[in-house]
Amino acid sequence: MKAFLQRLYSDYGMPSRLCTYERLVRAAHGAGFVQTSVRDFFDRVRSGQVAGKKFIVHRHDIDTDLRTTRKLFEIEKKHGIRSSYYFRLSTLDFDLMREIEAYGSEASYHYEELAAFAKKHRLKDPALVRQRLPEIRDIFRDNVKWFEAQFGRKIRTVASHGDFANRRLKLNNAEILADQALRRECGIECEAYDAALLDHIDLYIADRPPPQYYCPASPFDMLDKHDRICLVTHPRQVETNWAENTKANLSRFYEAVIW
């Protein structure tokens, strides 16, 4: 019951945390942090431009709620910072994505083909899912090509989405990109969970529903303790959107039932 009430509060009663996010952006600026995207930070790592500087790598996973996504983007434009926005196929907004890129931030793909395939074909055995990885990779390849054609831009970094099916299967969507030939073919230079990126991050923080809000610690408390922080946020954890949350909850319930 406690978990249910906390979820109800998170989805329908939580006050907006947009002001908290803006306060963090200001605090990080005051502490001398460069606030940038996954793509930009990865480029700086490869060119040896991170030594002696402090960074917050802002990554937004757009699982739901384009309304709050736009509000986050407006805050970042106001303060002149950059970030990465990773969109699922279900949350694509190419006009917004082109605005994000034109500004200098990154818009790219939050992929989930492994989980989607398992649910579609009602596969609950991880071994059976792995046997179908060639098919799943073909779907990923086709989706990336379609994504880029519609977007009108090449994408260079992507981020794996975490679905309830991934947790049940104990399989990560990132297994798709364990195939280096597929990476080369698609031009994917960095997956957001790659060691080549995260080995240069001191602390990885992800947002959480209330009452926790952040895991493993609040970024406010870490600004004077770490020089390179990756902060992952989701619009759903920043501001409640009754319509979007209800839609997402019903969709997940339906998928769980038919799977």
Results as ranks from 00 to 15, higher is better:
Phe4Arg: 14
Arg7Asn: 15
Tyr12Thr: 14
Tyr12Met: 12
Pro15His: 00
Leu18Ile: 02
Cys19Lys: 02
Val25Arg: 01
Ala27Glu: 14
Ala28Gly: 07
Ala31Met: 05
Ala31Val: 07
Ser37Met: 08
Val38Met: 13
Phe41Ala: 03
Phe41Ile: 04
Phe42Lys: 02
Arg46Ala: 07
Ser47Tyr: 10
Gly48Gln: 09
Gly52Met: 10
Lys54Arg: 14
Val57His: 14
Val57Gln: 13
Asp61Gln: 00
Ile62Asp: 05
Ile62Glu: 07
Arg67His: 15
Arg70Tyr: 12
Lys71Thr: 01
Phe73Ile: 13
Ile75Ala: 03
Lys77His: 10
His79Ile: 06
Ile81Asn: 03
Leu92Pro: 13
Asp95Asn: 07
Asp95Gly: 04
Arg98Gln: 05
Ile100His: 02
Ile100Glu: 00
Tyr103Arg: 00
Gly104Val: 00
Ser105Tyr: 06
Tyr109Phe: 13
Glu112Gly: 06
Glu112Ile: 08
Phe117Leu: 02
Ala118Phe: 14
Lys119Thr: 09
Lys119Pro: 08
Arg122Tyr: 11
Arg122Gln: 09
Leu123Pro: 15
Val129Tyr: 12
Arg130His: 10
Arg130Gly: 04
Gln131Arg: 15
Arg137Cys: 10
Ile139Gln: 08
Lys145Trp: 13
Lys145Leu: 12
Phe147Asp: 00
Gly152Cys: 09
Gly152Leu: 07
Gly152Thr: 09
Thr157Arg: 05
Val158Asn: 00
Ala159Glu: 04
Ala159Ile: 04
Ala159Tyr: 08
Asp163Glu: 08
Leu169Trp: 04
Leu171Ser: 07
Ile176Asp: 02
Ala178Gln: 08
Cys186Ser: 11
His200Phe: 14
Ala206Ile: 12
Arg208Cys: 12
Gln212Glu: 10
Pro219His: 01
Phe220Met: 03
His226Thr: 12
Asp227Leu: 13
Leu231Pro: 15
Pro235Val: 03
Gln237Ser: 11
Asn245Thr: 01
Asn245Cys: 03
Ala248Asp: 12
Arg252Glu: 10
Tyr254Glu: 01
